[in-house]
Design a protein around this nucleic acid. Structure first.
Lengths: 185, 185
DNA sequence: AGCATGCCTGACCGATCGGTCAGCACCTGA
DNA sequence: TCAGGTGCTGACCGATCGGTCAGGCATGCT
């Protein structure tokens, strides 16, 4: 166990990660087998499982950057209320969704299932706080409903318009968010 | 196997359909096996496949009423333009989504996959026309994006707020739609 | 009675899934 | 020279999937 040693040549780990991202984005998480990924890389399935403990570990490493940004947004939301919370949540989530479109696309088919797994358990709570912020922390059911429409709509749209350039998608989404959310009294 | 009542007319077909609807709504289409459905009904998996040619046929029969209403909405949309198209599409789709929440919930995990199958191929085209109507048939990309956010957001929200009464959900969704869509010039 | 028909079943099939494992080829440092 | 670690692999495993099939058990018609 030599610590700090520079690794010699092993590029396979990254190649597997990249290929998995590509395949997941097309056929979803459950819809992509380890065999598929191995074929895309040009190695054996056993090699994939040599570099990653299991399929879920692969997904975790793929999602880590997106989750980090989501947690940062959650932190910025703490203590905000009313229209300010709506604005921060709106800008932050639109930016996140646009930047991590691919990750959202690969998650979207199995989002409910994935949230059940312990590795992603806290995402559920973060998204609940995000919806509360979208609703401006208003208790009104109609505000909650509007918040959910916006959250789900943005995520789905980003996953769908995967080829539209960021600079076009982001302002259009921001405009929708600002119109759609229920104004707080 | 059944209750003491002698079954003059065996209604296993309907029971399977109802049980499948319940299971699909919880675990999704792909996530529900024929074994699961059979267990819920209290019959064997072979019985399920005696009443339905295959798993997809079961889904088709389950979705038929919702698809019929969707096609009716599509027909009403023909020839409309601008703000009128937006209003008709909004009211029509919100009503459809609220009424067929369960069907949407069971579809949502596998919507992209399902649309590929020949049995549901034309749904793709209908939803494209629906989005065009939501956009007021404006060619602007921002209008298309707003339309997609609304369409996907409504569908997802209906599937999520499955316990909220219709009379509460419908007006709240309609309000969001009217705010969110890009006004047509 | 005999026979057909409708409903249902257990046993089974081939395919595919995620995951394990023993071992091979290669490189490196002692 | 050789022991040992790294990267990788084919063969294999148990489980589960959708789907098939021959046959059993009622019932009703002739």
């Amino acid at each position: 166990m030599l610590e700090g040693m520079a690794r010699a040549v092993p590029e396979t780990h990254g190649e597997i990660l990249a290929a998995a991202a590509r395949r997941f984005a097309v056929t979803g998480y459950k819809g992509t087998s380890l065999q598929d990924i191995a074929r895309a890389v040009g190695c054996s399935k056993a090699t994939v499982l040599y570099h990653f403990a299991n399929k879920e570990a692969l997904l975790c490493e793929l999602m880590a950057p997106a989750i980090a940004v989501l947690e940062a947004l959650d932190a910025r939301l703490a203590g905000t209320t009313g229209a300010a919370a709506q604005e921060i949540a709106g800008e932050g989530f639109v930016d996140l969704a646009v930047r991590f479109r691919r990750e959202i696309a690969l998650l979207r088919d199995e989002f409910p299932d994935l949230l059940q797994q312990p590795a992603f358990a806290h995402i559920q709570q973060i998204s609940e706080r995000l919806i509360a912020a979208f609703a401006g922390h208003s208790g009104r059911p109609s505000a909650q409903i509007a918040a959910f429409v916006v959250l789900a709509g943005i995520a789905e749209t980003c996953a769908e318009f995967i080829d539209v350039p960021d600079d076009e998608l982001r302002p259009a989404l921001l405009a929708v968010v600002r119109r759609a959310l229920e104004p707080v009294t």
